[in-house]
């Protein structure tokens, strides 16, 4: 295990759902790439996605040859009575030379810190550690070196928190946006029986149906209508919290519009807040997305590192619903 080499400015942590996407992320300037094994141990357990052990070994070799680090997300919660799948994932990540593992479960953190004390541990956003005390618990108990902050904090709160804890902080900068506190949401399992925490999926495609009724397109998840689109209206995927519902006799995107997070305009603020790393969401996304988003953010963090602003890049065509928000980072969002 080598020491974690600090980059000038913000470190860029980029997603990869396949070895090809991993190469794209590295070519586009990623400092770190995070990925997961092809099973329920990570929060993007989608068909056709993720890495076999061989693929991870080869990918780590490639990444290290380019001075890029590989982080392995093992960030779902082990099923009661079945710890082996998760423990093996940690053992294999260590054996294959991963630079860090990203964990959420307390039992698994205990396992990793006992069995592989030299393997760097990052606390996943799925652990939803939103205060200095919660973070302090994970530092003292398991020696975590970095915490991925849940998307519930404003930039000012992030600044105060980062100053208070003796650990690196990482924040989401771009991509899909959970509007609920991550890791503390059972909406998907209420409608489908499959949850992000246990199964690594949210609003899974296996439970999605579209039907046409009186000219309108209806998107359903399990037994529930998530949205209804008038003829000609752009129809999106029925992610539960981005659906249209009726409250007080008024239909609206009650929880959140079908929008994506972009903190591109806040990079200098995040750097000033003492944040160590920016994370880009999207292990399920294709190479075009990865290349374009990673390149734009690498330029932006490099510029911010020398006190400059990078030229604006239009990423809106790559976002869900083709619209962007700074989400919880701005207080008015609440």
């Amino acid at each position: 295990m080598t020491d974690w080499q600090k980059v000038d400015g913000l470190e860029l942590v980029c997603p990869a759902g396949t070895p090809a996407a991993l190469r794209s992320a590295i070519d586009a300037g990623a400092h770190c790439v995070y990925c997961g094994f092809r099973d329920a141990t990570n929060a993007r357990n989608f068909p056709g996605l993720n890495f076999s052990r061989d693929e991870l070994r080869d990918s780590i070799a490639f990444a290290h040859s380019r001075n890029v680090k590989i982080l392995v997300a093992i960030n779902t919660y082990p099923k009661a009575g079945q710890p082996d799948l998760w423990r093996t994932a940690i053992d294999d990540a260590a054996r294959l030379g991963a630079d860090a593992v990203i964990l959420a479960d307390i039992g698994l953190l205990a396992y990793a810190s006992e069995r592989h004390p030299g393997l760097r541990r990052h606390l996943s956003v799925q652990a939803s550690a939103s205060t200095p005390d919660a973070i302090e618990f994970y530092i003292r108990a398991f020696g975590v070196k970095r915490v991925v902050l849940p998307r519930v904090l404003t930039v000012e709160e992030i600044r105060r928190l980062t100053a208070e804890v003796d650990v690196e902080t990482e924040v989401f900068a771009f991509g899909g946006l959970c509007v609920m506190a991550e890791g503390r949401c059972s909406l998907s399992s209420y409608a489908t029986g499959k949850s992000p925490n246990v199964n690594g999926v949210c609003s899974p495609a296996s439970d999605v149906a579209y039907e046409e009724r009186d000219g309108a397109l209806i998107s359903r998840l399990g037994q529930f209508t998530i949205n209804k689109f008038a003829p000609g209206e752009l129809a999106g995927y029925p992610t539960l919290c981005k659906g249209r519902f009726t409250a007080l006799n008024q239909s609206s995107y009650l929880f959140e519009e079908p929008t994506s997070l972009s903190a591109m305009s806040m990079i200098a603020d995040m750097q000033a807040a003492g944040v160590t790393a920016l994370k880009i969401e999207g292990r399920q996304r294709g190479r075009a997305y990865i290349s374009k988003v990673v390149r734009a953010f690498r330029d932006a963090v490099d510029a911010a590192a020398v006190g400059k602003e990078a030229p604006a890049v239009d990423l809106s065509t790559l976002t869900e619903g083709a619209s962007e928000t700074t989400g919880a980072y701005a207080k008015r969002w609440r």
Binding site: Y77, K79, A80, G81, D105, I106, G107, A127, G183, R184
Partner: peptide, 12 residues
């Protein structure tokens, strides 16, 4: 509201 999903976490 705490994420306790398995026996290892509970024992800890």
């Amino acid at each position: 509201f705490l994420n306790v999903y398995n026996e290892d976490t509970l024992v800890y």
